[in-house]
Nucleic acid binder design. Structure first.
Ligand SMILES: [Mn+2]
Ligand SMILES: [Mn+2]
Ligand SMILES: [Mn+2]
Ligand SMILES: [Mn+2]
Lengths: 227, 227
DNA sequence: ACAATTTTTTAGCTTTGTCTAAATTTATTT
DNA sequence: AAATAAATTTAGACAAAGCTAAAAAATTGT
């Protein structure tokens, strides 16, 4: 990630991350109001911050035209996301937090400044490639394998892939998955889909099971043989 | 530690911790200039902050009379110190940092807000009683065993105790200790002391060794049969 | 085309934590 | 007991990050 040789405040880092995520959704330039909503602040505060980030060449900004990350800004975003997701892995794998409890704490931990820390944490965790929600962890240079993850409900019959994420991370849903022996990292094959109600039969490590459309639209598979 | 039900900023927490440490050294009330030096700020900034902490009943303060922690303030200090030292244990035991590298990062990590996090970290580390520098870790209620630790150079012949800390945490010194099979947690017995140069013969797990006065005045033993 | 609505920016104010310079209080010397 | 020195506080400013209310620009509807 080539570290960034200028100091960034916690708030600046969160803005950069928000802009990154918003531009993933909509590729074009990001609207002031969208950032305000994401950051739970007012549009006027966003305008002020965006000007500051523009001064530091982290974003490209023209009045009334929205904002987009510069290459420098993109690398900063990925460095923060890397830290966020590594900490999430730590919280789940080492401290036995559950998937849905880790976000808030990771939101704080991602701002700890120490390159040595994050390198050693990465090693301690065995250089994980995805976080507990199945999202990819960028490496030090900001590269990551764009998981071509798709919802089971959107995949054709006979697709096969690794379960890498959930859409709904509520406790209820996670409990359901546990009970049905569905876990991140498992490989599933889609055997059949009912026209009638969209329910899907999948092959899991404990055999074939039937899941409802609702479940199918909340589980991401990473397809093995694509790109 | 009963958590504190009011929000504290990072800066307030660092001030409270500084005041705690300074009042350990000198028991009386702490001087504005002393805090300024510790915090690397100006005395006028300290006055402002101390007024604010006084508003929140964390310190007792009278103009020109110095400042001391209230009971509430003392508990806050101990809660931060607990976090600081647990993170130090984590960095050394789990991430393979060395003793002298952990302070700066722990200085940041101590401010992460999450009771669940610190409980689970404590458990993950096996409920350690001392940090990598031999300093005691307060429990959740703010209690800790005041280690009656003394320098080897200050202990009488035939004293016996567990090596719990170092005075000098320079890399050179730590390397020396490694080479001579001296580690925290080891039990030593003082066999003899030379009047001539103050050098001391101690019994270690690999037999009796002779250490210079300089070394003896940098190693703390916790005496077993006291209090 | 132009009025109405929505989005975005500006202006001005607030809080936190810092600073410098000046004033005040306390401590130390003669 | 002054006079001097040191420690502490006050006054006034500043940067960061937020807010509200008002102005300006862009978009939408007719
Ligand atoms: Mn954050
Ligand atoms: Mn995640
Ligand atoms: Mn700190
Ligand atoms: Mn320590």
């Amino acid at each position: 990630m080539l570290l960034y040789y200028f100091e960034m405040t916690l708030s600046e880092e969160d803005y950069i991350k928000a802009i990154y995520h918003l531009s993933q959704i909509d590729s074009k330039s990001v609207a002031t109001n969208a950032i305000a909503e994401q950051m739970k602040t007012k549009p006027s505060s966003v305008t002020d911050m965006v000007k500051k980030l523009s001064e530091k060449s982290l974003v490209k900004y023209k009045k009334y035209q929205g904002v987009s990350l510069s290459e420098k800004g993109r690398l900063v975003a990925l460095s923060i996301i890397r830290k966020h997701r590594l900490w999430e892995v730590f919280l789940v794998d080492k401290l036995n937090f559950s998937w849905d409890e880790v976000h808030e704490v990771a939101e704080q931990l991602e701002h700890i400044k120490s390159d040595a820390l994050i390198d050693k944490l990465d090693a301690h965790l065995g250089f994980p490639k995805v976080d507990p929600h199945g999202d990819p962890i960028p490496n030090k240079e900001g590269f990551f394998t764009k998981s071509v993850k798709k919802l089971i409900s959107e995949l054709p019959v006979l697709s096969e892939g690794v379960c890498v994420g959930v859409n709904d991370s509520s406790v209820t849903f996670l409990k359901f998955l546990d009970k049905n022996n569905i876990a991140l990292g498992d490989t599933f094959k889609i055997l059949d889909r009912e026209e009638f109600d969209g329910s899907v039969t999948i092959l899991t490590r404990v055999g074939a099971i039937r899941i409802s459309e609702q479940i199918a639209s909340n589980l991401f598979l990473e397809i093995v043989d694509e790109e």
